[in-house]
């Protein structure tokens, strides 16, 4: 039950993007196409999961004074792994995410969860937390990038769904479009959340 709650937490109540509003740099930068959003979400989830497992396992061995550098070192190791892995097996994705993969190191979502959760909780709960947070991050990224790709290019996951009559709104795939659509989505989510409370 507790594990389920740890997992569910990231999906909605403490959703990293909608509720905690952290990890926005990749959120805004790579969500111009759905495939990029999905790849970034999965890559971040993997790093989050792997580093939460390692850190909650060895948390007692790390002196308090160097915990942040230690966390970053561990996170950076997994990020470098993901970077090489994508380049070797998914070169097309690696090219389109380019330097945002190394930048996962400084995604505050990952460091934040180590500090707030993995360093205080046992391994099995950290796994549940990482899966929940990772999925919570991924679904928002995918939703946001579908909206932007659809409005900006008339396509979803690279398939043209809107016909020639549709005049693409170029702004949606530029950085400004990321802010606009994220703002509107956060607004909608807050509205839904508030309605839920009133009931």
């Amino acid at each position: 039950m507790q594990l389920w709650n740890d997992f569910k937490n990231g999906l909605w109540q403490e959703n990293p993007i909608f509720r905690l509003v952290i990890g926005l740099c990749p959120t805004l930068a790579v969500t111009n196409t759905a495939i990029n959003g999905l790849a970034m979400g999965l890559a971040t989830s993997f790093v989050l999961l792997a580093s939460e497992i390692v850190i909650s396992t060895i948390k007692k061995l790390i002196p308090n004074d160097v915990r942040i550098p230690s966390y970053i070192l561990i996170i950076a190791t997994f990020v470098t792994f993901v970077d090489y892995f994508l380049k070797a097996f998914f070169p097309a994705v690696a090219v389109s995410l380019s330097l945002f993969v190394p930048l996962i190191v400084v995604n505050c979502l990952i460091l934040g969860r180590q500090e707030a959760f993995a360093s205080k909780n046992p391994v099995h709960r950290s796994i549940a937390d990482a899966l929940g947070m990772g999925l919570g991050f991924t679904w928002v990224l995918v939703l946001l990038s579908i909206v932007r790709e659809l409005l900006g290019m008339g396509a979803v996951f690279g398939f043209q769904v809107l016909g020639d009559w549709y005049q693409p709104m170029i702004i949606m795939i530029l950085p400004a479009g990321a802010f606009i659509s994220l703002g509107i989505l956060v607004g909608i989510m807050n509205y839904i959340a508030r309605k839920g409370v009133r009931k």
Partner: peptide, 15 residues
């Protein structure tokens, strides 16, 4: 990372 590098580098070069 040295192991990861050795494992993936040939594939990256091939691409």
């Amino acid at each position: 990372l040295a192991f990861v590098y050795q494992w993936t580098m040939p594939k990256i070069l091939q691409h």
